[in-house]
Nucleic acid binder design. Structure first.
Length: 274
DNA sequence: AAGTCCCGCAACCGCTGGTAT
DNA sequence: AATACCAGCGGTTGCGGGACT
């Protein structure tokens, strides 16, 4: 037994959305909120698949979308995040307010790939092209998984021998990038000497950020904005984070390589790629 | 002006993970 | 444990418009 189709394909429109369809969708979501995409089309009087409605809303109609050209800063941020996360467009989008995964994916394929090639950097491995050429195993094929090479590939699993010192609270509120950069970049630089991995990423925007008490922890999955993850290891006193601190890692706060709050010793095991 | 090519983007498709029953 | 449903993700496709011949 498989899954039933998400909609009655025979009675749904396909292709570009009309202004009227957009208006109907916007009006419905304004009145009832997001969710229940399967039943939404019928309720909203749309001859569309629920999936299609969701995509249209998320990628085009959402009021918080930024639209417009990407800035140079956004370009660099995408490149850096891609070098660390691979084709995890939704994760990358999560670090770029107002941008969608689809938008970033398209932008990557049409602009950034070319930009990196012009810089002599392989867009898949983020290694210098000449280095890739000298190691035939480092293919530039479809996989986002870093290619094999004499040196270990980038983070399937990474560990840094030097634990990050716990900054004072006022330091992490102001994100002491320099500390992180100095301590985190060396191993990466070793592997990608031409790749500037200086990361300056802000935490997700919060209207009224709740100050963390010294001694509390936040796990990597939560720092990425992944709610209710089974990997969550946060202390219970952090809003929206309900896991228990059971991974044996110390309770001091440090920064992961994305500039996000985490335990003093960052545990990259939670960052395994597919 | 007409035809062709190329590029960018919106949308679709197939699949996976999570959850409820 | 098995099944069904839902939401979401990432790869791919196809259309529209601009550039080029």
């Amino acid at each position: 037994m498989g899954r039933s189709p998400c909609c009655e394909k025979a009675h749904t429109n396909k292709g570009a959305w009309t202004k009227e369809e957009d208006d109907r969708l916007i009006a419905y979501i304004k009145a009832h909120g997001e969710g229940c995409w399967r039943s939404l089309p019928k309720a909203a009087g749309l001859l569309r698949c629920g999936k299609s409605c969701r995509l249209r809303w998320i990628n085009y109609l959402r009021p918080d979308l930024k639209r417009g050209n990407f800035t140079e800063e956004e370009d660099e941020l995408i490149i850096k995040l891609h070098s660390l996360l691979g084709n995890k467009w939704s994760l990358i989008a999560g670090r770029l307010p107002g941008r969608t995964d689809n938008e970033i994916k398209n932008y990557w394929n049409t602009h950034i790939k070319r930009k990196l090639l012009n810089r002599g950097i392989d867009p898949v491995t983020h290694r210098p092209l000449n280095e890739v050429a000298s190691h035939p195993d480092s293919s530039t094929t479809t996989s986002a998984t870093p290619a094999t090479s004499p040196t270990p590939p980038p983070p399937k699993t990474i560990s840094f021998s030097t634990p990050i010192k716990t900054p004072k609270q006022e330091e992490f509120l102001g994100f002491k990038d320099e500390i992180m950069n100095q301590q985190m970049q060396e191993p990466m630089r070793e592997r990608c000497p031409d790749l500037n991995l200086e990361l300056r990423i802000s935490p997700p925007y919060q209207e009224n950020p709740e100050p963390l008490k010294t001694g509390t922890t936040i796990c990597f999955t939560c720092s990425l904005g992944l709610k209710s993850s089974k990997d969550c290891n946060c202390s219970k006193n952090i809003g929206g984070c309900s896991g228990s601190s059971s991974n044996g890692i110390g309770s001091s706060i440090g920064y992961d390589f994305l500039g996000l709050r985490t335990n003093g010793a960052f545990d990259y095991r939670s960052l395994e790629m597919k």
